[in-house]
Design a protein around this nucleic acid. Structure first.
Length: 669
DNA sequence: CTAGGGTTAG
């Protein structure tokens, strides 16, 4: 009905309007623009074709509508066939190419830019956007320098500065920022945000306090979120309260509340989370989809799945993130069936939905389901690949993981830091220095040398491959090592027979040690024969000064330590009196020591216990057989060594070598 | 008609 009426009006307008009816043309141009913005190319095109008189603006609006709808060929045809063009038309065509975020399109944009008869400030800004999006900072920088000084307005400078910040090129960003003659609120806010995103909260706050323009909601939001994302929840909350006092408290930006709720979820702030949720409800902000999604996410992270479900059901405008947040909530609780039900129910799914579901199956070890899901996905991005690879790795299939990684690279999907972290663990597991070094080269190429999780994985990979000095070199370059870094390095020293250095590093710890730290230092003592030190660490751990409970692994390390030193009876006594149930690793340590010191009774005891726990254990079976048939108690027998050359392990190792032998080629970012 | 900040899920 409405459409017919419009057509009627339109028809009358066409018949009554003369060639010079400019207001009608303007009206149609606006409608084409509107159709383009809502993605209705068909209506835009229909109107365009019916217009007897078209202006430059008409063509420009139409080409933009086509481009937004993905029809680049038709957009270009409109541009090429325009009877006359102005700067805006050229800019629009360049913008259309730039928005494709693709190298060849940016090149085409650049050709147009070079050929245009006249340029305005916007031409430079848009072209620079293209280079920035393509991470071509050389060209972007050159173009910035080539931009006439009077045209280097905040608009233009902010684009380049923002690009530098996004790619972690802080110094270049600062250079642009400080060189700007005029800075607006976007310039300041972007720098504050950029510092925060690069972990420099102190510098961000200095700028935040130093700004000479009025802060707006973006500025506040960046700073509050910056505090929270960098682990300073209380400072963030304080600043939020300060904002409420300083600015008009009548309305509140949903974005800032969203940021806080997300942080409540990730730092497990149950009380604050509930309070802020209540506050958002009172202010009527809960209709905001972003905010609603963050509520679902927060309760999911708390494990309060019913609250999450309630927030989901209450949300008026659900989008794909709403669904994904709740699916993720079920997955996090291990409720994979419920997650799958929701996954099947969702009418719109994106790669996140599929990946969440994949990690759900992975958490249950259902590797075939993971692969089935992965194969059913239409697009595989870096995270999807990483989820699959990680699922395969968790099942211990290193060679297969390497195979998938090579596939990923061949498909030209750029690995992220978590992919590389995973793969470095594979290289450690495979004991393949060659693979590890190639991955290290990829890390450098992709500028991920400063990523903490990558650095930690590198330390672990190198030390497991015997290259402990290389591991140490990387460890020393970590700007803010966390407990995982220390654990990797301590264990690395230990397994390479450098017990003193392990002990030394432990004494320099700036973090409370955890279970892994103690396991590392105990193993280090065992390897280096530091019996007294080992005893001391073990006692200090048990004295609960650090709040760490000794588990069976720690006892295994102690049995190993005592056993290697020949204190077999003390080791056996430790097993007898340990408060946790000894697992096969504990008995294995005793078996190894008993073998080394030719204590037949204890070896047989240990082997028997292992076989009770693991009837298929080859080492124990071999030991029992060996003792029964061959060994007559001579010292120095090397049966344990021959078994330790675990054949299955070797096979996997060589399998991995073969798969990645065509060196890994990654395109530079 | 063409241009620049923040927030949610893997």
């Amino acid at each position: 009905m409405i459409v017919n009426f419009r057509l009627l009006v339109l028809r009358r307008s066409f018949s009554t309007s003369g060639a010079g009816d400019r207001s009608f043309v303007v009206h149609c141009n606006q409608r084409i623009t509107r159709y383009g913005r809502i993605g209705n190319v068909v209506e835009a095109e229909r109107l365009f074709n019916r217009m007897p008189e078209k202006s430059i603006v008409t063509h420009t609006a139409m080409l933009t509508a086509y481009a937004e709808g993905g029809h680049m060929d038709r957009a270009r045809k409109v541009f090429d066939e325009m009877p006359r063009r102005n700067v805006a038309a050229w800019n629009a065509m360049i913008t259309a190419y730039v928005r494709r975020r693709n190298i060849s399109d940016v090149e085409e944009a650049h050709r147009l830019f070079l050929n245009m008869p006249e340029r305005n400030p916007l031409s430079y800004t848009v072209m620079m956007m293209g280079f920035v999006d393509a991470s071509n900072f050389d060209e972007a920088g050159t173009l910035y320098v080539a931009t006439p000084v009077e045209w280097r307005d905040p608009f233009c400078s902010n684009v380049l500065m923002k690009g530098y910040l996004k790619s972690g090129r802080l110094e270049e960003a600062v250079r642009i920022f400080e060189g700007m003659k005029e800075k607006n609120v976007v310039s300041w806010s972007s720098m504050v945000d950029g510092y925060c995103k690069n972990g420099k909260v102190t510098e961000a706050r200095e700028l935040f306090d130093a700004m000479n323009v009025v802060r707006n909601e973006f500025t506040w939001c960046s700073m509050v979120d910056g505090y929270m994302k960098n682990g300073f929840f209380d400072d963030g909350l304080l600043l939020f309260l300060q904002m409420r006092k300083e600015t008009s408290a009548t309305k509140l930006e949903p974005a800032i509340v969203t940021a806080i709720l997300e942080s409540c979820g990730s730092t497990f702030r149950l009380k604050e989370g509930r309070q802020i949720h209540g506050c958002a409800l009172r202010l009527g902000l809960d209709r905001d989809t972003y905010l609603g999604n963050s509520i679902i996410g927060m309760y999911s992270k708390f494990g309060w799945i019913r609250e999450a479900r309630k927030a989901f059901d209450a949300l008026g405008n659900k989008d794909v993130v709403s669904w994904n947040s709740l699916i993720s909530g079920y997955v996090q609780l291990g409720m994979v069936d419920e997650a799958q039900q929701l996954f099947d129910e969702a009418e719109t799914k994106d790669s996140v939905s599929w990946t969440v579901m994949l990690t759900g199956f992975a958490s249950k070890g259902l590797i075939d389901e993971c692969i089935r899901l992965f194969d059913a996905m239409t697009e595989h991005d870096d995270v999807a690949w990483t989820a699959l690879i990680s699922a395969i790795l968790n099942r211990g299939h290193y060679g297969e993981a390497v195979h998938r990684f090579v596939d990923m690279i061949r498909k030209e999907v750029v690995p992220n830091s978590s992919t590389l972290s995973c793969m470095l663990c594979a290289a450690a597991g495979l004991v393949s220095l060659r693979l590890g070094q190639q991955l290290h080269a990829v890390v450098c190429k992709l500028r991920m040398e400063s990523d903490l999780s990558v650095q930690n994985s590198l330390v672990s990979m190198y030390s497991k491959n015997g290259a402990v000095d290389e591991a140490r070199r990387i460890f020393l370059r970590i700007s803010a090592p966390n407990i995982v870094s220390y654990n990797a390095m301590i264990a690395g020293f230990g397994r390479n027979g450098r017990g003193e250095e392990a002990v030394d590093l432990f004494s320099q710890l700036r973090h409370p040690p955890n279970e892994v730290t103690f396991l590392g230092v105990l193993s280090a003592c065992a390897h280096a024969g530091l019996v007294e030190e080992g005893r001391r660490y073990f006692e200090s751990m048990k004295s609960s000064a650090f709040g760490v409970e000794a588990n069976a692994d720690h006892y295994a390390a102690m049995v190993d330590l005592l056993g290697k030193a020949g204190l077999l009876e003390e080791a056996a006594e430790l097993i007898r009196t340990m408060p946790v149930e000894p697992h096969s690793g504990v008995w294995g340590a005793l078996l190894g020591a008993a073998g080394m010191h030719s204590n037949r009774d204890l070896a047989e005891l240990a082997a028997a216990r292992i076989l009770e726990l693991e009837p298929d254990n080859a080492v124990a079976a071999f030991a029992v057989k060996r003792y029964r048939d061959v060994m007559k108690g001579q010292p120095g027998c090397s049966w344990i060594d021959s078994v330790e050359n675990r054949t299955s392990f070797r096979r996997q190792h060589t399998e991995g070598e073969r798969v990645y032998s065509n060196s890994i080629q990654v395109k530079e970012k």
